[in-house]
Amino acid sequence: MRILVTGAAGFIGYHVCEYFLREGAEVVGIDNLNDYYDVALKQARLERLALYDSFIFRKIDMANGGDVLALFQEFSFTHVINLAAQAGVRHSITHPEDYVRSNLDGFFYILEGCRNSKELKHLVFASSSSVYGLNTLMPYSVRHNVDHPISLYAASKKSNELMAHTYSYLYGIPSTGLRFFTVYGPWGRPDMAIFLFVDKILRGDPIDVFNHGKMRRDFTYIDDIVEGVARVTKKPATPNPDWNGRSPDPASSPAPFKIFNIGNNNSVSLEDFIATIEECLGMQAQKNYLPLQPGDVPETYADIDDLFNHVGFRPHTDLTLGVSNFVSWFREYYGK
């Protein structure tokens, strides 16, 4: 396997690279190393990946199409895993232009590279639970309508699914989109809830608790996400022979295209999540209760039956174990 992983210096990208490197695959990672959050953390991830002889890193901004297409000409990729994106729902409210450049323009050039690749077996790309938007039917199913996003971040991820399907249909590119649900774990992003909570509690600062604590999330541990990505990557999407245009299945196609949720299949209240962090830290949080923020949804909860039926895997990491692992990493990395 010769795999291109975009967003290789990112949280999920780093872990996915390491998984395949341990399996002996050749991995080419790209990242633009932007300053959305601490670049030193991204560099630290890359330093760990550089310990593998079969890892090659290129600093590339996917929105620079010439650089992306040149990369595809230099390497004959068998698999492409697109994890690069401008992340963050709230950031998309204040900086929408970042999402057009990274998530739309950047993904377009990845698709163009795939279209001209002769050895490509599978394109896997990150989508998000955010695409479910105003849908309140739980658990979220890949067969639900996702036409009502409430942030540009969510809209960009829905757009990625539509763009990938189009290229899959026109050019026969096997493509699979994965809707991630609130990923957490060691080497996580500093803008994520668990990172912010642990950091502030250790500092003795109050934490912001949105929607007055009445939020629920399907928290999914990073190892489970990586296992799901790996299994899906190794099983390219195929056409659905039973697909019917009169009653179209949103999760499949007559083209080699599929969509899956990857979540823990367990919706946890924000209050319980904070209590778990407090237990692992042995400290109590000071809470600053705030209203629901623009772009946020009150609850997420993943139906993962399709994922299990496809690759025989269900995320299973217990929340207490996952939070404990993150706290241990945080204390060691930051010396706290």
Rank of each mutant, 00 (worst) to 15 (best):
S130M: 04
I207W: 01
P206M: 12
F72I: 05
N103W: 05
D35T: 15
Y169D: 13
Y184K: 01
P291Y: 07
R217M: 14
V142Y: 00
K336V: 11
D296E: 13
S328H: 14
P236A: 09
Y221G: 00
V89F: 14
L196R: 15
L290G: 02
F197L: 06
S129W: 02
N34D: 10
G263F: 01
N82V: 02
Y333S: 11
R217Y: 11
I304F: 03
T220V: 09
L69H: 06
G133H: 05
E279W: 06
R314K: 13
V226T: 01
L49M: 12
K42V: 05
Y109A: 07
S76R: 09
W243T: 05
G24D: 11
K42T: 09
P315W: 00
M192C: 09
M1W: 03
L104T: 14
E74T: 10
P248A: 07
K336Q: 08
D105R: 14
I201S: 02
H122K: 06
D296K: 01
S159H: 15
A25W: 06
I60F: 00
N265T: 06
L321V: 13
F219Q: 06
S247C: 12
Y132W: 09
R246I: 08
P241S: 12
Q293E: 10
K157N: 12
W243L: 06
A237C: 08
T6L: 06
I222P: 00
P248N: 11
G228L: 00
F195G: 03
V28W: 01
K121W: 03
Y167F: 14
F313H: 09
R101E: 14
R2G: 04
M62D: 01
G282Y: 08
L123D: 03
D272W: 06
D61F: 00
V323H: 02
V100W: 10
I277W: 04
L319T: 00
P149Q: 03
D305A: 07
Y36H: 15
D318Q: 09
G335Y: 07
A126R: 00
Q73R: 11
D38C: 15
T94Q: 12
T176Y: 02
N64Q: 13
T136C: 10
A126D: 04
A40S: 13
R143N: 08
D306C: 08
D98L: 11
G13C: 11
F326C: 08
G106E: 13
F11R: 07
I201L: 03
Q43Y: 08
T238M: 12
G322A: 09
R189W: 01
G29P: 02
K235D: 10
P186N: 10
D199I: 00
F108M: 10
M163I: 09
S92K: 05
I277K: 03
T320F: 05
V209Y: 04
S175W: 00
L196Q: 12
K157Y: 12
K121V: 12
N288L: 04
P294Q: 12
G312P: 11
E18Y: 01
E26H: 11
I81S: 03
G188A: 09
Y109K: 05
R217Q: 11
S267Q: 02
F77W: 06
P298E: 12
E112V: 10
H212K: 14
D53P: 11
H144T: 06
D242Y: 10
L71I: 09
V100R: 13
C280I: 03
